[in-house]
């Protein structure tokens, strides 16, 4: 289905369709291939800076700046199984399009999100950043490990795993088209999963 010419992905969701699901599954299958690993230090540094900046913006709760790092038609996906199955027939921990990501931020700002009252304090360590080429020069895949220390309700806990970013060229820079967050405990009961990962 073609979206109306004026469709604003912040207001309506036309781009999440079967073709997109199939493309998403394909993009996040078999991409971590040594033959596609980018070794150029400058390129790797550029993308390392991108994921470090994302971590900083989230730690500092700069949600508008963070959302601006994402393409207009983006996806944020936290699978509920270690091998990230088909999101059309599997509940995800989180599966957000642009509008639902903005819902997520909106909710946290209402002042009535009791799971974040008071807000968690987080520090993210992002390491092992690798860059993988895709068939097109305008798209790269990034793999990084994360360790989020989250202080909430008088305790500090660890949320850890690895993330896959699909980044697409946008003007002089890059936007995040899709982020897949793979929590190592994704298929287990998690206490208060209410921060943005």
């Amino acid at each position: 289905m073609n979206a109306p010419k004026t469709a604003d992905p912040s207001r309506s969701s036309y781009y999440v369709n079967d073709a997109l699901y199939r493309e998403l599954i394909a993009n996040f299958t078999d991409w971590q291939d040594d033959a596609r690993a980018v070794t150029d230090a400058a390129i790797r540094d550029e993308f390392r800076c991108l994921v470090e900046r994302e971590a900083r913006l989230l730690d500092r709760l700069k949600y508008d700046d963070w959302l601006a790092m994402y393409a207009a038609e983006c996806l944020y996906w936290v699978p509920s199984t270690p091998n990230a199955g088909d999101p059309r027939r599997e509940i995800a921990v989180m599966f957000d399009d642009r509008r639902r990501l903005e819902d997520r931020v909106y909710r946290l700002r209402t002042g009535f999100a009791w799971s974040q009252a008071p807000q968690s304090r987080t520090v993210r360590l992002i390491t092992n950043v690798e860059v993988f080429a895709t068939a097109g020069d305008d798209t790269h895949m990034l793999r990084s490990n994360f360790l989020i220390s989250e202080f909430w309700d008088k305790e500090t806990r660890i949320l850890t795993g690895w993330a896959g970013h699909r980044v697409v060229r946008s003007g002089a820079g890059w936007k995040i088209a899709a982020k897949q967050v793979n929590l190592i405990e994704c298929d287990q009961a998690i206490r208060n999963p209410s921060i943005i990962l």
């Binding site: 289905m1 979206a3 469709a7 309506s12 969701s13 036309y14 781009y15 999440v16 369709n17 599966f95 957000d96 399009d97 509008r99 639902r100 819902d103």
Partner: peptide, 12 residues
């Protein structure tokens, strides 16, 4: 309420 893909699938 609003969920990913709802406008597309409704029209489709």
């Amino acid at each position: 309420s609003a969920h990913p893909g709802m406008e597309h699938y409704e029209a489709d």
